[in-house]
Design a protein around this nucleic acid. Structure first.
Lengths: 402, 402
DNA sequence: ATGTAGGCGCTACGCCGACAA
DNA sequence: TTGTCGGCGTAGCGCCTACAT
């Protein structure tokens, strides 16, 4: 069998020079594929609820420092801020390819908060791409000894079909990463039994991205038929970032002071949301928040389900019971709904699942008890929403409360 | 001639796993060698003057964003804060080996500021190690084609002497980097004409540290005769760090809010000082500050000298003239001494030298005019100080003012 | 269906002088 | 004195199949 031609990874070598310049934003499809099935971003122009508490949790997770006690209080900063989502841009870290979103928020003046909270749910949940696959790399995939073994169904679903009359069938694939950088691979179907492989070009990709066994790669075919590829690193490393720029305390204070100042002046402020770093979303569509707060009557002992991402990047629901309710931080953030529920999980493997969750994260199993009038457009038709909303709807219908 | 034995870079392979854990702080000698000859840190327990303005300049340099206009004002935060330097720890970035210092400061209550400003100069300037060398890497040094060419004098000064009876003379060198990680090199004296080279082990070091031509390595022999090695990267990259954790605005605000809160409560706060990133030192010994403010009568047209670091990491003085005086930011920081002097430089190659400097950075060429009484211990004997102080002393002696 | 290992060709890494500059 | 190059030997990269799970 003939040797493969000398494929040069086109822009791969020049990449070193451009390493620290972002060329283009990732496509929405690729970004969401990397972010995972649980992540959805509220649409630009919609109203959201911002939780400083959740934001500081993300910073703490990034700096690997817990919040210190000597952080100043901002008595005028409420535990939740209703905001206009002025802008959202998608990004990927230049070092790690970790995805994050930059959001600019404009706090709604307190006088208009109530009204804003009633704004309709115009959210179109960003859906996962359909023609994509994600594979966790094995030791063989990342070793220098060979190439990348493509799961059969994955190759047939997303890669262009091979010409099986060739012996062996092979083609050159081009795929663009989150920074719009192009990578070249030789895709071949060979071996006994037959299998799909990426050979030439794969190792330069692995070493350039510093992939290790346990990390995952992800290929999608976009609506133009072009291939894109992304990375999901194993939780292990996740950019520990001791920063050396700002102390964790100053970062913590910076989050609060920025939000406080923006709230006081109704001016724009900017935050970064790292879906795979942050323990929970801290920018929530008002409708989702409002439904959870007003429509659900929760109580200790109540059973619920909650969605989690599986190893294979699909979703799975875990069952649990509410074991308590109350402020996570009664001193600093009294009367906050952030992680106000203490919960226990049914399965014994629940080691790493949170012991505290927020109202809007759970799907109750009992019929909800309505406390507030629903938003005006509540029964209006709208695009296919997330599962939580969908099930809320069906439950409300069953309750036939009005 | 026989082939070299198979040297394995001892901890180099395991290093991957430990990549994100700091093992030990750099030694003071190595840290200062990497920081360069201009950098000195005030001693723990001494009084210092902290400039929020200078601190935000460093943050701006790190995030590559200029300070935005919509940063809130902190009217109660003065442009300079007299502080007790509670602690200093030395560090090196785990990704880049860039050195930085973590300082914890405790603001002195305004009532005691005047007194604190008069505290004696107990500073022992951290001296550069004597047995060290620093070489900027050439294309040959960093290419995969060969090893590292050691300047002759450098090798003879810092490396253990070779046994020149061998043919060729060679030895194994071990050196620890800023993270106390050990690296192994084969040191050989060969070629026609004879020269010192590092061969085996060098390329793994270059690729692990991602060194490029233009970066510099630096070897020192410490007081126990052990070798240490550090890195000074070319200004080019210098960890651009788009962060993805905190917006540059929030960082900026965080610096100010943290200082403001610490000043208001006389409580400890933490800052990072990146000597090779920051345009200027922003934590100054009170004595140095006080001398510059009180003892110098500066005026437009006055000639001065100022110390800069040369390419070869030694020092050199440039001549200039004061062309103006006034606040750098009259709105936000009125009556600040931070970069209050506008200057012009004699040499036409002054492209990258600052157009604005602070009083304590310059050495005036005229006899100083004393305005305030000197600190009590001013004439007391003290350890060998930095050049600026030394010259100040001699000038004051010549002036024979009292 | 796909992870790992043995076989083995060949590239490029890296050790060596020879030259300049 | 020291930067770069042509020369080469060989380690290990990477393409292939076999085999196991």
């Amino acid at each position: 069998s003939e040797r493969p031609p000398n494929l040069v990874s086109g822009s791969g070598s020049k990449a070193q020079l451009m390493e620290h310049m972002e060329r283009r934003s990732p496509t929405s499809e690729l970004w969401h594929a990397c972010a995972g099935p649980l992540v959805s971003l509220p649409p630009i122009g919609s109203r959201v609820v911002y939780f400083p508490q959740g934001h500081t949790e993300q910073v703490a997770a990034s700096t690997q420092r817990e919040a210190e006690t000597h952080i100043p209080n901002y008595p005028s900063l409420p535990s939740r801020l209703v905001c206009l989502l002025d802008n959202v841009t998608l990004h990927a870290d230049l070092e790690t390819d970790e995805v994050y979103a930059q959001m600019t928020l404009i706090p709604v003046p307190p006088a208009n908060e109530k009204e804003a909270l009633m704004s309709p749910d115009i959210g179109i949940r960003s859906r996962q791409p359909t023609d994509y696959f994600c594979k966790t790399l094995t030791a063989s995939d990342t070793s220098t000894h060979g190439g990348f073994s493509i799961p059969r169904r994955a190759a047939e679903k997303v890669f262009p079909p091979l010409d099986y009359s060739q012996t062996p069938p092979a083609q050159e694939l081009k795929a663009r990463d989150l920074h719009d950088q192009e990578w070249h691979f030789r895709h071949i179907y060979r071996g006994q039994p037959r299998r799909h492989l990426l050979t030439t070009g794969w190792s330069v990709f692995v070493s350039a991205k510093r992939l290790q066994a346990g990390d995952a790669v992800l290929f999608i075919r976009d609506d133009k038929g072009q291939l894109q590829l992304g990375i999901r690193r194993q939780n292990r490393q996740q950019t520990v970032m001791p920063s050396s720029v700002l102390s964790s305390d100053s970062m913590h204070i910076g989050v609060l002071a920025a939000a406080n100042h923006a709230a006081a002046t109704s001016s724009r402020f900017t935050i970064f949301y790292n879906p795979r770093q942050s323990p929970s979303e801290f920018v929530i569509p008002v409708a989702k928040y409002q439904k959870a707060i007003c429509n659900l009557q929760v109580s200790v002992g109540m059973r619920f389900r909650m969605v989690f991402e599986t190893e294979e990047s699909s979703v799975r629901r875990y069952m649990g019971t509410i074991t308590g309710m109350g402020d996570l931080d009664p001193i600093r953030w009294p009367n906050s709904h952030w992680r106000s529920l203490k919960v226990g999980w049914d399965e014994s493997t629940a080691g790493e699942r949170q012991r505290r969750v927020s109202l809007w994260e759970i799907e109750p199993l009992t019929t909800p008890f309505l406390l507030c009038p629903p938003p005006l457009t509540f029964r209006a038709k709208r695009p296919w929403g997330g599962r939580v909303d969908e099930e809320m709807d069906s439950m409300l219908k069953k309750a036939s409360f009005w």
